[in-house]
Design a protein around this nucleic acid. Sequence first.
DNA 1: GAAGTTCTGTACGCGAACGCACATAGTGAA
DNA 2: TTCACTATGTGCGTTCGCGTACAGAACTTC
Lengths: 239, 239
Amino acid sequence: MYPAQDPRLNHILDALPTLEHERLFPHLKLVPMPLGMVLYESGATLRHIYFPTDSIVSLLYVMQDGASAEIAVVGNEGAVGVSLFMGGETTPSRAIVQSAGSAYRLTGARLKQEFNRHGEMLHILLRYTQSLITQMAQTAVCNRHHSLDQQLCRWLLLSLDRLRGSELKMTQELIANMLGVRREGVTEAAGKLQKLGAIRYSRGKITVLDRPKLEKLSCECYAVVKKESDRLALPNRSS
Amino acid sequence: MYPAQDPRLNHILDALPTLEHERLFPHLKLVPMPLGMVLYESGATLRHIYFPTDSIVSLLYVMQDGASAEIAVVGNEGAVGVSLFMGGETTPSRAIVQSAGSAYRLTGARLKQEFNRHGEMLHILLRYTQSLITQMAQTAVCNRHHSLDQQLCRWLLLSLDRLRGSELKMTQELIANMLGVRREGVTEAAGKLQKLGAIRYSRGKITVLDRPKLEKLSCECYAVVKKESDRLALPNRSS
DNA sequence: GAAGTTCTGTACGCGAACGCACATAGTGAA
DNA sequence: TTCACTATGTGCGTTCGCGTACAGAACTTC
């Protein structure tokens, strides 16, 4: 196991071969990721790419009227700021810390430098980007066809996968923002899950009691994203 | 203007510098794209990448229960099969021709060969992929927050942008499949648009009469996608 | 421990889209 | 012309989530 914080807690950084590893690690900076921290605003030029270790970041789109919807969620399996190496520099969405923790970050310039060496980093980042694409696509489908109950299950599972333990600190209000639904709707859905014994919650703390039950109640979307994400993740080199 | 079919009708191919242009064009094969043609199935290994000239391709996800939803639409501004160079080889969605026409295609091997030279093609494809990402994200948001009426406008505009002329051959049934809604819902929404004088339609033929009106009735999603797509498109080298 | 704030629970009417059923109208083939 | 088929129009009851309003409960601060 790694110490409390180590770049290799992030799967992308962990997957780098020794050479790139040595080249890059000295430039990584560990930064705290407090709840609600905005990593970038819609349309703003990205300055860094972030590799979460134990934090979770939501990519969400905020509309003109203030309504919002989560597009994807990023944890220690990925990176925040893919548009840096994709070439667009900006992206019309907001990245906000959904679960506090830490991340390693790299300046955009340094990242692009490494990316343009066309080494393993390029392939790893592109593969990760594809899994991100899958997640977005599945979010679109899920928003169209599935019930709030199912979506809540999907969301809980996606978050759970990116955390250690089975507890997440998150008010129903915030979850509603992420899912782009009413807070009352989340209260109701969460109430059902609690009655079923799948979760327990109280004032911003949700404990998952019965994960298999949650998976059963979720729509197929979770499984699709999970499977694709696992498939596209390269094997750890340090394990 | 180009002849009836020319690789440069596709914006990506058109943006290639001379050297790559000469290297690649001999390997392009012009293929007809009849309505309903499936370019790839969910999870199937991609054999080719397609560059539409005057056809439109829908990327859609089909669920276990048969329900479907469009994730993105690709015309002469882009390419179908991005997972080939992103590294995943497959993708959990289906690509199906939504508007008949033609496309140039390249074998996956040849594409990867060119991609791995790390020339201009790589950057062009990555930038395009980012605009595709934006489209998917916006689809997710739109599915969550906007009415069927608004979504129909968005969809019509996105299709229109990828066609010459202002007429599209498309039954309400098919549109419903793309949007992931009921056919009756489309009938109703299209009826409204016709009453307002924005479109005229009859048995699988839709004519846009008043595009500005359509844009006005559409949600912001169309404009966001359009703007980002334009921003990420490189300038034509041959114009 | 009192007051204020935050989080959660509940209720009611409303509107959008759904599922279903069936009617009408163009279109093409025999 | 007639028939079959496809595309579109319409109606009805239902469900889901929304907007609004408000009440209770738990935590924080003073």
